[in-house]
């Protein structure tokens, strides 16, 4: 049996069907957390934002109309909540905390790999928030440029320009890693 589409589930949720809500939420939980986490830089904030976004979906479902894809609408809620949270709270980077020493034999390799990952994460984190959102929506959520532009409330050409600027900045800051690998 084919799973129900997001939009069909949303229509059920709009009629107060909480089972449909519990079926829809797992499809987007990790992606919502991922988007919020990369924009706010905080696990705790991301958890709070994802929960708030799902509650907003439930509360506003009766007024939702299937004119746009649910995914676009939902990511826009998460993105707006993340921006609000980021403007309210000071920013604590995820990678700020030092790792404890690792006794395993391949520890040095792992440290090197972690170090590269940390540099990439830091480079993404240092982007302006809209450029960072563009990168996350494109690479992490695998959205089309049109959908991502819709989420960010900008035109397609403006989104593409944003993405080009973000990639150019990242290529500059990750030059050593890109050239090495």
């Amino acid at each position: 049996m084919e799973p129900e589409s997001d939009e069909a589930l949303m229509l059920k949720i709009g009629r107060g069907d909480d089972r449909a809500f519990r079926q829809l939420a797992p499809r987007y939980a990790a992606r919502a957390v991922g988007l919020a986490r990369r924009i706010t830089g905080s696990d705790a904030d991301a958890e709070e934002i994802a929960q708030e976004a799902f509650l907003r979906v439930w509360i506003n479902a009766p007024r939702w109309r299937p004119q746009a894809a649910f995914r676009t609408w939902f990511y826009r809620i998460v993105f707006n909540l993340s921006l609000n949270q980021r403007r309210r709270a000071p920013f604590f980077p995820l990678e700020a905390a030092a790792d404890p020493p690792d006794p395993t034999p391949d520890a040095s390799m792992r440290i090197e790999r972690d170090e590269i990952g940390r540099q990439i994460a830091a480079a993404i984190r240092e982007l302006p928030e809209r450029q960072r959102a563009a990168i996350v929506l494109t690479y992490d959520n695998e959205l089309s440029n049109a959908d991502a532009a819709n989420i960010l409330h900008i035109s397609l050409s403006a989104f593409e320009a944003l993405l080009v600027r973000a990639r150019r900045t990242l290529r500059e800051s990750l030059r050593s890693i890109v050239d090495e690998h």
Partner: peptide, 19 residues
């Protein structure tokens, strides 16, 4: 970029389970 964001997904999933 795609690889880095994929690595971070396991942490996302743990938080998503809590949510």
């Amino acid at each position: 970029l795609a690889h880095q964001l994929k690595i971070e997904k396991s942490a996302d999933e743990a938080i998503a389970m809590r949510v």
